[in-house]
């Protein structure tokens, strides 16, 4: 039997969708066009000459390649360290009851509750005394702080969602507590934790203020390099090409996320 509900066109919804699309796609499109433009002079609407000239110019620079490898190394190291530190902590938050648990749990929000730059400047002052300014590990430390929230809160939700009977059943057949965590709890929470790792990797890759304030000028990540290009070079194309390069990791992350993260895990991670 057919339903007799007439479908009305939701004009408000369509307007919002179109505006949102323009707001998101528009700038991306402009930057994308600039990256493949050789000549584009006012008042022409489309570039006079397309081409890959600025790509070869950008990729020929040694500082671009060193900053790409710096960014990848940094994001990998930070994500790995963050996992080693945060996953056991998240498990403790999810499964154990200890005094001050709730206050500690919400304290991770504190780093994100205040203006970030103020916090960074304060930390930079401390790092200066510790001789961490301009060092790789100084940048690692500052970026670790940024990943704490994701890497604690999302895995906590993931661990809480694991059926305790599964863990008990594993104890029952002879697995010790650590083996249970490794063979049962971690794989069960796997997809959601993979989402947290992705977020942490991509977040670190794009993090700019901390990396610039603590790392400059010795440690130059791709976003930091882009800032200096924008500030120092009169040529728009350098920045545009770097922007397109910067999209690559998030694009790969998205593809990966679609495969690894089954629907709902992301939402579960955020308590949805």
């Amino acid at each position: 039997m057919a339903t007799l509900v007439s479908r009305r066109i939701d004009w408000t919804g369509i307007v919002f969708a179109v505006l949102l699309t323009i707001a998101i796609i528009g700038p991306l499109l402009v930057v994308g066009i600039w990256a493949f433009t050789n000549v584009w002079r006012f008042p022409s609407i489309i570039p006079q000459e397309f081409g890959l000239r600025w790509w070869s110019a950008t990729l020929a620079r040694a500082d671009v390649w060193s900053s790409i490898s710096m960014s990848l190394t940094l994001a990998s190291v930070v994500t790995l360290l963050s996992a080693i530190i945060c996953l056991p902590a998240a498990y403790a938050f999810a499964r154990l009851d200890f005094p001050g648990r709730d206050i500690l749990f919400f304290s991770f929000l504190a780093g994100h509750a205040f203006p970030k730059f103020g916090l960074l400047v304060a930390i930079a002052a401390i790092f200066l005394q510790l001789n961490l300014i301009g060092t790789f590990w100084g940048v690692v430390l500052i970026q670790l702080v940024g990943t704490l929230l994701f890497m604690i809160w999302i895995p906590v939700a993931a661990f809480q969602a694991v059926d305790r009977r599964m863990e008990e059943a594993a104890r029952d057949v002879g697995a010790g507590p650590f083996r249970v965590f490794w063979s049962i709890t971690l794989p069960q929470a796997g997809p959601t934790i993979a989402a947290a790792l992705l977020l942490s990797f991509v977040g670190t890759f794009y993090e700019t203020e901390g990396a610039w304030l603590i790392g400059a000028p010795q440690v130059r990540t791709l976003p930091v390099l882009m800032i200096s290009f924008i500030n120092n070079q009169p040529v728009i194309q350098f920045g545009a090409v770097l922007s397109v390069l910067l999209w690559i990791p998030s694009f790969i992350a998205l593809l990966f996320a679609r495969r690894v993260v089954n629907s709902g895990s992301f939402a579960r991670g955020f308590g949805g």
Binding site: E168, A169, A170, R171, P187, G190
Partner: peptide, 30 residues
């Protein structure tokens, strides 16, 4: 004694099978 050191085998109400393993691996784990 902790559960892993007891000669007991428990069947749970919710079956508590490990969903990331197939049937064979569930049985072979112990």
């Amino acid at each position: 004694l902790p559960p892993e050191r007891r000669p007991t085998g428990m069947v749970f109400q919710s079956h508590a099978l490990w969903t990331h393993m197939n049937v064979f691996d569930n049985l072979a784990f112990g």
